[in-house]
Design a protein around this nucleic acid. Structure first.
Lengths: 138, 138
DNA sequence: GTAAAAATATTGACTTATTCCATATTTTTT
DNA sequence: AAAAAATATGGAATAAGTCAATATTTTTAC
Protein backbone atom coordinates (compact mmCIF):
# COMPACT_ATOMS: atom_id res chain seq x y z
CA UNK A 1 0.00 0.00 0.00
CA UNK A 2 1.97 2.90 -1.34
CA UNK A 3 1.62 6.41 0.01
CA UNK A 4 -0.87 8.46 -2.04
CA UNK A 5 1.57 11.28 -2.78
CA UNK A 6 4.02 8.76 -4.16
CA UNK A 7 1.32 7.22 -6.32
CA UNK A 8 0.57 10.58 -7.85
CA UNK A 9 4.23 11.45 -8.44
CA UNK A 10 4.96 8.05 -9.91
CA UNK A 11 2.30 8.74 -12.48
CA UNK A 12 3.71 12.11 -13.34
CA UNK A 13 1.05 14.11 -11.54
CA UNK A 14 1.42 17.12 -9.30
CA UNK A 15 0.46 16.50 -5.72
CA UNK A 16 -2.50 18.62 -4.71
CA UNK A 17 -4.73 18.52 -1.69
CA UNK A 18 -7.70 17.93 -3.97
CA UNK A 19 -6.22 14.93 -5.72
CA UNK A 20 -5.08 13.36 -2.50
CA UNK A 21 -8.51 13.77 -0.98
CA UNK A 22 -10.21 12.38 -4.08
CA UNK A 23 -7.90 9.40 -4.02
CA UNK A 24 -8.68 8.75 -0.38
CA UNK A 25 -12.40 9.15 -0.98
CA UNK A 26 -12.39 6.64 -3.82
CA UNK A 27 -10.53 4.19 -1.61
CA UNK A 28 -12.97 4.76 1.24
CA UNK A 29 -16.04 4.57 -0.90
CA UNK A 30 -15.83 1.94 -3.61
CA UNK A 31 -18.36 2.35 -6.43
CA UNK A 32 -19.01 5.95 -5.43
CA UNK A 33 -20.35 8.51 -7.89
CA UNK A 34 -18.52 11.75 -8.63
CA UNK A 35 -21.10 13.46 -6.47
CA UNK A 36 -20.56 11.14 -3.57
CA UNK A 37 -16.81 11.54 -3.87
CA UNK A 38 -17.21 15.30 -3.93
CA UNK A 39 -19.24 15.21 -0.72
CA UNK A 40 -16.72 13.01 1.01
CA UNK A 41 -13.90 15.29 -0.02
CA UNK A 42 -15.78 18.34 1.16
CA UNK A 43 -16.37 16.84 4.57
CA UNK A 44 -12.65 16.10 4.71
CA UNK A 45 -10.92 19.18 3.38
CA UNK A 46 -13.70 21.75 3.59
CA UNK A 47 -14.34 22.45 -0.05
CA UNK A 48 -13.57 21.44 -3.58
CA UNK A 49 -15.02 22.53 -6.88
CA UNK A 50 -17.11 20.15 -8.88
CA UNK A 51 -14.68 20.59 -11.72
CA UNK A 52 -11.67 19.64 -9.63
CA UNK A 53 -13.43 16.42 -8.69
CA UNK A 54 -14.11 15.56 -12.31
CA UNK A 55 -10.60 16.57 -13.29
CA UNK A 56 -9.01 14.48 -10.58
CA UNK A 57 -11.18 11.45 -11.26
CA UNK A 58 -10.61 11.74 -14.99
CA UNK A 59 -6.85 12.06 -14.67
CA UNK A 60 -6.63 9.20 -12.21
CA UNK A 61 -8.63 6.98 -14.52
CA UNK A 62 -6.44 8.00 -17.43
CA UNK A 63 -3.29 7.15 -15.55
CA UNK A 64 -4.69 3.82 -14.48
CA UNK A 65 -4.78 4.64 -10.79
CA UNK A 66 -8.51 4.12 -10.47
CA UNK A 67 -11.19 2.62 -12.66
CA UNK A 68 -14.41 4.10 -13.94
CA UNK A 69 -17.49 2.04 -14.60
CA UNK A 70 -20.57 3.42 -16.27
CA UNK A 71 -23.60 1.23 -15.75
CA UNK A 72 -26.70 1.93 -17.79
CA UNK A 73 -28.99 4.41 -16.10
CA UNK A 74 -26.45 5.47 -13.53
CA UNK A 75 -23.80 8.14 -13.27
CA UNK A 76 -20.24 6.88 -13.48
CA UNK A 77 -18.85 4.98 -10.52
CA UNK A 78 -15.24 4.87 -9.40
CA UNK A 79 -13.16 2.28 -7.62
CA UNK A 80 -9.55 1.75 -6.74
CA UNK A 81 -9.50 -2.02 -7.07
CA UNK A 82 -7.76 -2.39 -10.39
CA UNK A 83 -5.73 -4.78 -12.45
CA UNK A 84 -7.52 -7.95 -11.41
CA UNK A 85 -10.11 -8.12 -14.14
CA UNK A 86 -13.03 -8.26 -11.78
CA UNK A 87 -16.59 -7.54 -12.79
CA UNK A 88 -19.72 -6.11 -11.22
CA UNK A 89 -23.07 -7.25 -10.02
CA UNK A 90 -25.64 -4.46 -9.81
CA UNK A 91 -29.11 -4.42 -8.28
CA UNK A 92 -31.67 -3.10 -10.75
CA UNK A 93 -33.81 -1.79 -7.93
CA UNK A 94 -31.49 -0.02 -5.52
CA UNK A 95 -28.29 0.20 -7.56
CA UNK A 96 -26.17 -1.62 -5.01
CA UNK A 97 -22.97 -2.68 -6.72
CA UNK A 98 -20.68 -5.49 -5.62
CA UNK A 99 -17.48 -6.87 -7.04
CA UNK A 100 -17.46 -10.24 -8.72
CA UNK A 101 -14.38 -12.20 -9.57
CA UNK A 102 -13.92 -13.17 -13.15
CA UNK A 103 -16.26 -16.02 -14.00
CA UNK A 104 -13.92 -18.10 -16.05
CA UNK A 105 -10.35 -17.67 -14.97
CA UNK A 106 -7.64 -15.11 -14.69
CA UNK A 107 -7.32 -12.01 -16.85
CA UNK A 108 -8.76 -11.96 -20.38
CA UNK A 109 -11.54 -14.24 -19.30
CA UNK A 110 -13.44 -14.12 -22.53
CA UNK A 111 -12.67 -14.34 -26.17
CA UNK A 112 -14.97 -13.11 -28.86
CA UNK A 113 -15.87 -15.82 -31.31
CA UNK A 114 -15.53 -13.58 -34.34
CA UNK A 115 -13.69 -10.36 -33.74
CA UNK A 116 -14.43 -8.70 -37.10
CA UNK A 117 -10.84 -7.55 -37.40
CA UNK A 118 -11.11 -5.53 -34.19
CA UNK A 119 -8.23 -5.39 -31.78
CA UNK A 120 -9.91 -6.28 -28.50
CA UNK A 121 -8.53 -4.45 -25.48
CA UNK A 122 -10.95 -5.10 -22.71
CA UNK A 123 -14.05 -7.02 -21.83
CA UNK A 124 -16.62 -5.44 -19.59
CA UNK A 125 -19.08 -7.69 -17.83
CA UNK A 126 -22.01 -6.49 -15.78
CA UNK A 127 -24.38 -8.83 -14.01
CA UNK A 128 -27.82 -7.32 -13.51
CA UNK A 129 -30.13 -8.64 -10.85
CA UNK A 130 -31.91 -8.01 -7.59
CA UNK A 131 -30.15 -7.87 -4.27
CA UNK A 132 -31.43 -9.73 -1.20
CA UNK A 133 -32.86 -6.58 0.37
CA UNK A 134 -34.83 -5.65 -2.73
CA UNK A 135 -36.11 -9.12 -3.44
CA UNK A 136 -39.72 -9.62 -2.38
CA UNK A 137 -39.88 -12.06 0.52
CA UNK A 138 -40.85 -15.55 -0.66
CA UNK B 1 -40.97 -12.22 -40.03
CA UNK B 2 -44.25 -11.06 -38.57
CA UNK B 3 -45.99 -7.96 -39.78
CA UNK B 4 -45.14 -4.94 -37.60
CA UNK B 5 -48.78 -4.11 -36.79
CA UNK B 6 -49.29 -7.65 -35.57
CA UNK B 7 -46.18 -7.46 -33.44
CA UNK B 8 -47.54 -4.35 -31.74
CA UNK B 9 -51.00 -5.82 -31.21
CA UNK B 10 -49.60 -9.05 -29.90
CA UNK B 11 -47.82 -7.10 -27.25
CA UNK B 12 -50.93 -5.23 -26.26
CA UNK B 13 -49.94 -1.96 -27.89
CA UNK B 14 -51.98 0.38 -30.01
CA UNK B 15 -50.85 0.61 -33.58
CA UNK B 16 -49.71 4.11 -34.44
CA UNK B 17 -47.86 5.46 -37.41
CA UNK B 18 -45.09 6.61 -35.07
CA UNK B 19 -44.54 3.21 -33.51
CA UNK B 20 -44.57 1.45 -36.84
CA UNK B 21 -42.02 3.86 -38.22
CA UNK B 22 -39.81 3.57 -35.15
CA UNK B 23 -39.96 -0.19 -35.40
CA UNK B 24 -38.96 -0.09 -39.05
CA UNK B 25 -36.16 2.38 -38.33
CA UNK B 26 -34.71 0.17 -35.61
CA UNK B 27 -34.80 -2.78 -37.97
CA UNK B 28 -33.18 -0.77 -40.75
CA UNK B 29 -30.53 0.75 -38.53
CA UNK B 30 -29.19 -1.65 -35.93
CA UNK B 31 -27.33 0.01 -33.05
CA UNK B 32 -28.89 3.37 -33.87
CA UNK B 33 -29.26 6.10 -31.26
CA UNK B 34 -32.63 7.63 -30.42
CA UNK B 35 -31.52 10.62 -32.42
CA UNK B 36 -30.64 8.58 -35.45
CA UNK B 37 -33.93 6.72 -35.23
CA UNK B 38 -35.78 10.02 -34.99
CA UNK B 39 -34.11 11.27 -38.15
CA UNK B 40 -34.89 8.10 -40.05
CA UNK B 41 -38.50 8.27 -38.98
CA UNK B 42 -38.75 11.92 -39.99
CA UNK B 43 -37.43 11.18 -43.43
CA UNK B 44 -40.00 8.44 -43.70
CA UNK B 45 -43.18 9.86 -42.29
CA UNK B 46 -42.44 13.57 -42.32
CA UNK B 47 -42.27 14.33 -38.64
CA UNK B 48 -42.30 12.91 -35.16
CA UNK B 49 -41.72 14.48 -31.77
CA UNK B 50 -38.62 13.65 -29.77
CA UNK B 51 -40.89 12.45 -26.99
CA UNK B 52 -42.79 10.06 -29.21
CA UNK B 53 -39.51 8.50 -30.26
CA UNK B 54 -38.44 8.02 -26.65
CA UNK B 55 -41.87 6.72 -25.72
CA UNK B 56 -41.98 4.25 -28.56
CA UNK B 57 -38.44 3.02 -27.97
CA UNK B 58 -39.06 2.73 -24.25
CA UNK B 59 -42.30 0.83 -24.64
CA UNK B 60 -40.86 -1.50 -27.25
CA UNK B 61 -37.91 -2.26 -24.99
CA UNK B 62 -40.28 -2.85 -22.08
CA UNK B 63 -42.36 -5.28 -24.08
CA UNK B 64 -39.29 -7.12 -25.28
CA UNK B 65 -39.73 -6.21 -28.92
CA UNK B 66 -36.39 -4.45 -29.18
CA UNK B 67 -33.32 -4.23 -27.01
CA UNK B 68 -31.53 -1.23 -25.58
CA UNK B 69 -27.80 -1.16 -24.93
CA UNK B 70 -26.09 1.68 -23.13
CA UNK B 71 -22.36 1.64 -23.65
CA UNK B 72 -20.23 3.91 -21.51
CA UNK B 73 -19.79 7.33 -23.02
CA UNK B 74 -22.48 6.84 -25.62
CA UNK B 75 -26.18 7.52 -25.83
CA UNK B 76 -28.37 4.42 -25.75
CA UNK B 77 -28.42 2.23 -28.83
CA UNK B 78 -31.33 0.11 -30.04
CA UNK B 79 -31.53 -3.12 -32.01
CA UNK B 80 -34.19 -5.59 -33.01
CA UNK B 81 -32.07 -8.70 -32.82
CA UNK B 82 -33.24 -10.18 -29.56
CA UNK B 83 -33.52 -13.41 -27.68
CA UNK B 84 -30.24 -14.91 -28.79
CA UNK B 85 -28.01 -13.67 -26.01
CA UNK B 86 -25.55 -12.00 -28.29
CA UNK B 87 -23.07 -9.39 -27.16
CA UNK B 88 -21.33 -6.34 -28.59
CA UNK B 89 -17.93 -5.29 -29.75
CA UNK B 90 -17.43 -1.54 -29.79
CA UNK B 91 -14.63 0.57 -31.23
CA UNK B 92 -13.29 3.00 -28.65
CA UNK B 93 -12.28 5.42 -31.38
CA UNK B 94 -15.22 5.66 -33.76
CA UNK B 95 -17.95 3.89 -31.81
CA UNK B 96 -18.65 1.31 -34.47
CA UNK B 97 -20.66 -1.48 -32.87
CA UNK B 98 -20.91 -5.03 -34.13
CA UNK B 99 -22.74 -8.08 -32.85
CA UNK B 100 -20.80 -10.92 -31.31
CA UNK B 101 -22.17 -14.33 -30.60
CA UNK B 102 -21.96 -15.54 -27.05
CA UNK B 103 -18.40 -16.59 -26.31
CA UNK B 104 -19.08 -19.66 -24.29
CA UNK B 105 -22.25 -21.35 -25.40
CA UNK B 106 -25.92 -20.81 -25.70
CA UNK B 107 -28.00 -18.59 -23.43
CA UNK B 108 -26.86 -17.77 -19.90
CA UNK B 109 -23.26 -17.96 -20.93
CA UNK B 110 -21.77 -16.83 -17.68
CA UNK B 111 -22.25 -17.54 -14.05
CA UNK B 112 -21.03 -15.30 -11.31
CA UNK B 113 -18.66 -17.08 -8.99
CA UNK B 114 -20.20 -15.58 -5.86
CA UNK B 115 -23.55 -14.02 -6.31
CA UNK B 116 -23.83 -12.36 -2.87
CA UNK B 117 -27.41 -13.49 -2.54
CA UNK B 118 -28.43 -11.56 -5.64
CA UNK B 119 -30.92 -13.00 -8.04
CA UNK B 120 -29.12 -12.62 -11.36
CA UNK B 121 -31.39 -11.79 -14.28
CA UNK B 122 -29.09 -10.82 -17.07
CA UNK B 123 -25.47 -10.61 -18.01
CA UNK B 124 -24.23 -7.79 -20.16
CA UNK B 125 -20.97 -8.24 -21.99
CA UNK B 126 -19.22 -5.53 -23.96
CA UNK B 127 -15.95 -6.02 -25.78
CA UNK B 128 -14.01 -2.80 -26.15
CA UNK B 129 -11.37 -2.43 -28.80
CA UNK B 130 -10.28 -0.74 -32.00
CA UNK B 131 -11.82 -1.47 -35.36
CA UNK B 132 -9.71 -2.13 -38.47
CA UNK B 133 -10.35 1.35 -39.88
CA UNK B 134 -9.24 3.08 -36.69
CA UNK B 135 -6.21 0.93 -36.08
CA UNK B 136 -2.96 2.64 -37.05
CA UNK B 137 -1.42 0.82 -40.00
CA UNK B 138 1.37 -1.50 -38.85
C1' DG C 1 -70.28 3.57 -38.05
C1' DT C 2 -70.25 6.58 -34.38
C1' DA C 3 -69.51 8.26 -29.63
C1' DA C 4 -67.15 7.63 -25.39
C1' DA C 5 -63.12 5.92 -23.20
C1' DA C 6 -58.41 4.85 -23.34
C1' DA C 7 -54.10 5.35 -25.18
C1' DT C 8 -50.73 7.94 -27.48
C1' DA C 9 -48.51 12.26 -29.51
C1' DT C 10 -47.06 17.08 -29.14
C1' DT C 11 -44.82 20.97 -27.14
C1' DG C 12 -41.92 22.98 -24.18
C1' DA C 13 -39.94 23.36 -19.74
C1' DC C 14 -36.87 20.91 -16.72
C1' DT C 15 -33.24 17.70 -14.81
C1' DT C 16 -28.93 15.24 -14.42
C1' DA C 17 -24.31 14.30 -15.42
C1' DT C 18 -20.75 16.19 -17.47
C1' DT C 19 -17.71 19.38 -20.20
C1' DC C 20 -15.84 23.93 -21.73
C1' DC C 21 -13.66 28.17 -20.85
C1' DA C 22 -11.38 32.10 -18.79
C1' DT C 23 -9.20 33.51 -14.76
C1' DA C 24 -7.04 32.71 -10.29
C1' DT C 25 -4.22 29.91 -7.46
C1' DT C 26 -1.00 26.42 -6.41
C1' DT C 27 2.82 23.39 -7.41
C1' DT C 28 7.05 22.41 -9.53
C1' DT C 29 11.27 23.79 -11.66
C1' DT C 30 15.40 26.67 -11.96
C1' DA D 1 12.46 33.14 -4.51
C1' DA D 2 10.94 33.86 -9.25
C1' DA D 3 9.34 31.98 -13.46
C1' DA D 4 7.06 28.36 -15.72
C1' DA D 5 3.89 24.76 -15.66
C1' DA D 6 0.12 22.59 -13.85
C1' DT D 7 -4.08 22.64 -11.46
C1' DA D 8 -8.33 24.76 -9.22
C1' DT D 9 -12.31 27.83 -9.34
C1' DG D 10 -16.78 29.54 -10.87
C1' DG D 11 -20.01 29.84 -14.10
C1' DA D 12 -21.92 29.07 -18.52
C1' DA D 13 -22.95 25.48 -21.80
C1' DT D 14 -24.12 20.82 -23.59
C1' DA D 15 -26.14 16.22 -24.32
C1' DA D 16 -29.43 12.84 -23.34
C1' DG D 17 -33.37 12.14 -21.51
C1' DT D 18 -37.69 12.93 -18.45
C1' DC D 19 -41.96 15.40 -16.81
C1' DA D 20 -46.35 17.35 -17.31
C1' DA D 21 -50.34 19.51 -19.52
C1' DT D 22 -52.95 19.57 -23.58
C1' DA D 23 -54.29 17.88 -28.13
C1' DT D 24 -54.92 14.09 -31.16
C1' DT D 25 -55.50 9.46 -32.43
C1' DT D 26 -56.80 4.74 -31.63
C1' DT D 27 -59.63 1.38 -29.63
C1' DT D 28 -63.88 -0.16 -27.48
C1' DA D 29 -68.79 -0.45 -26.93
C1' DC D 30 -72.99 0.19 -28.75
Amino acid sequence: MTDPSTILRDHGLSVTAQRLAVLRAVAACPHGTADRIAEMVKSEIGSISKQAVYNALGTLVEKGVIRRIQPAGSPALFENRIGDNHHHLICRTCGKTVDIDCAVGKTPCLHASHHHGFHIEEVEVIYWGTCPECRPQD
